[in-house]
Design a protein around this nucleic acid. Structure first.
Lengths: 396, 396
DNA sequence: CGGCCTTTGTCCTGTGAGTGGAGAAAGTGA
DNA sequence: TCACTTTCTCCACTCACAGGACAAAGGCCG
């Protein structure tokens, strides 16, 4: 059921497609102002794109004092699938060619069930989105998994929290099932691409995107491109030592950031506090829900629970310590904080900021915004759509 | 006195020049095998380069079973100047177009004397090299300074150890004095470029180059290109916290890596140990020289002095801790250790390796060589020559 | 409403980049 | 001497691209 048969024939066509994707419908004249091509050459390439059906001309724009321009836009029936596999839930969304989310599903799940079981969920969700009427089929899918990925092949490698996925040919399998091209990446990189495309990082060339969820990872963008490292594990900052001789971590070391602050660590700390009677607020929530998560701690903190606030502050300080080092090293123009723990909001952000501004060098922090991501749950799926559209909107 | 009048007219010519620089003299046929151009087009561009005098054809190579090929090489009279300004000394070298060092001078100096005084030394050294007969004049110069640089303008910004240099127009001033194009960069980046061109990092695309001298810095190479960060301070790892609540550092924080291990910190520790009578070896050297430096400690360690060995091991462990974090984050394919402290040799390297392999993730360290730089004092000046040749061998 | 201006889009021709093949030049080996 | 290889040159053809002329389609103003 592959639908997008054509691909751009050259770099010019690819650039035009990306411009229409990123900046919306436009006229030939406006496109010509942004691309270093003569009007004649531009017209030729636009005509070819029209012939292949990758773009369409629908109607005329209002006059700006002269002849009215034709509105050029990407084919309106193009549909991309963004899939964001987390440790405990999965998000699937469908977008149009401009990467606007047309439908979004979220479902709890345990990534440790393994790829086969997880893909059953994913395919069911995709089918549901398709049957909603917005979609006839998918032209491509971008999927993020919570672990390192050998990017060219689209295969997870040695993922700590999802052992059953090691070496599983995600790209190939999913491509077969969905009948469309698929690209696979780390979930954190997807978030970075999402925030880059439609979020707070739209204008940043070199930035870091720290995702704090069940684990902690960091998307690295260099010159507008995601940097993945020599073996695809770049940005794996969860196991940087934050506390010398600190808590034992699942990785075998002590004092890893993830052991001290992450969705999992936070929940455990909160439950300890509740069972030790340190916080009535948390204890009552524990009784109600049977367990505690970041959401409970956020709510308790919002209600003024000092234990929760302290937990958040301490975690933010730890995270800030690590980020401070990364900022000195990488000198980004922006740091984005995202992930499930973002619900902890400005208390967390304040703690991180304080620590980074205190510890990093003035030249590196002088004009450094540290902000929360603005796309929330959508960041990953938009990033997925962006990933596959970058692939499809490149010369065949 | 500018001598290299011509510049490559297009990207093809630039690529050809770089190929001849990096791989030495070559025939048209061999060049054709490495460049995606037809032989006819290649011949045209080579002819143009010959006309401009940027390359010359000198003699015929031995036959390989057919017609003998013409030897093409870069103009043999091209001369580049590499200048490496350290905190306590300056290196100046002259190279040919293949970046082979033809002459090298080194002179003690204090960078805090300020740019004017330092440039007097540099210009005198350049004049000395010129009068040696190897050189008629310089076609370009690359200079490294021990602090952050706004790269496009070639101006140091807020350098901590050389305050008098802040905002001084190094590029412009030196270009005027030398009468040739000049490029300015951080000394650590220069070392990385040197090792990349002629040292251990020849085949690495993504690697880190840690320079431990008076201070500590780290050159970052992404996809073969030096990464400089948003404000030019990327790689400034000397002030990453290595010891919580550790020693006070000149930067105002506590526990910075540089406060615990660097040329300056090491010398101070050794002198403390000597004056406290902990090491007879160091004490005798202190008496002889009046002061102690990394060289003394290396010699004492080689002689079996346990205090020196412990100092080196502890410093290596601290450095290893920081590098371990950077390796997890950046996932390089190689880590190079260089700088003045390299004289401490394999004791230091072993301590660093142990700590990195213990603390970083297996996927990131699985196949990660950590090695000493192989160019020593030459790394910086070769890097400087490489910097300016990259600039000159690019389309005008 | 008609002239004049602006903006948008199309057509046409010239230039230069680049390819590929024929073949000359210069060697080796039997 | 002949066959074969490798290197280099020359030539004709194709195609990308620019730039200008021009057509189409509107607004503005007297």
């Amino acid at each position: 059921m592959r639908r997008m048969t054509a691909r751009p024939a050259n770099a010019h066509q690819a650039r035009l497609l990306r411009m229409l994707r990123d900046e919306g419908p436009n006229s030939r004249a406006q496109l010509g102002d942004q691309i270093e091509l003569s009007r004649s050459k531009l017209a030729v390439e636009v005509d070819r794109l029209l012939q292949t059906g990758l773009i369409v001309a629908d109607g005329l724009a209002a006059s700006r004092g002269g002849r009215r321009s034709h509105n050029l836009r990407l084919a309106p029936n193009l549909r991309f699938l963004g899939i964001d596999i987390g440790a405990t839930s999965v998000d699937v969304a469908v977008t149009n060619a401009e990467l606007e989310v047309l439908g979004h599903l979220n479902q709890p799940m345990d990534v440790r069930e393994g790829p086969v079981a997880v893909f059953e969920h994913v395919l069911a969700m995709a089918a549901k989105l398709r049957s909603s009427g917005l979609v006839e089929g998918f032209d491509g899918a971008g999927i993020g998994v919570p672990g390192p990925v050998r990017f060219p092949e689209g295969v997870p490698v040695a993922p700590p929290i999802m052992p059953g996925w090691d070496g599983f040919p995600v790209r190939e399998a999913l491509s077969q099932e969905l009948g469309c091209p698929v690209m696979v990446d780390n979930d954190v990189n997807l978030m970075a691409m999402g925030e880059q495309h439609a979020g707070v990082a739209r204008t940043a060339a070199d930035f870091l995107c720290v995702k704090i969820g069940t684990g902690i990872g960091c998307g690295i963008v260099v010159g507008g491109e995601v940097y993945r490292g020599a073996t695809g594990s770049a940005g794996d900052i969860g196991h940087i030592q934050a506390v010398p001789d600190g808590r034992a971590c699942a990785c075998g070391n002590r004092g890893c950031l993830e052991a001290h602050f992450s969705g999992a660590a936070l929940a455990r700390d909160a439950m300890d506090a509740a069972s030790q009677g340190l916080s009535a607020e948390l204890a009552s929530r524990l009784e109600t829900h049977g367990t505690l998560s970041a959401v409970d701690i956020a709510a308790a903190a919002a209600a003024g629970d000092t234990v929760s606030l302290d937990l958040i502050r301490e975690g933010g300080t730890r995270t800030g310590q690590v980020i401070a080092g990364l900022v000195s090293f990488f000198n980004p123009s922006l740091v984005v904080i995202g992930g499930g723990v973002t619900g902890l909001g400005h208390t967390l952000l304040a703690a991180i900021r304080t620590q980074v501004y205190r510890q990093s060098l003035p030249l590196a922090t002088g004009n450094l915004p540290i902000v929360l991501g603005e796309l929330g749950q959508n960041a990953g799926v938009i990033g997925g759509a962006r990933l596959i559209s970058d692939h499809l909107f490149s010369p065949a």
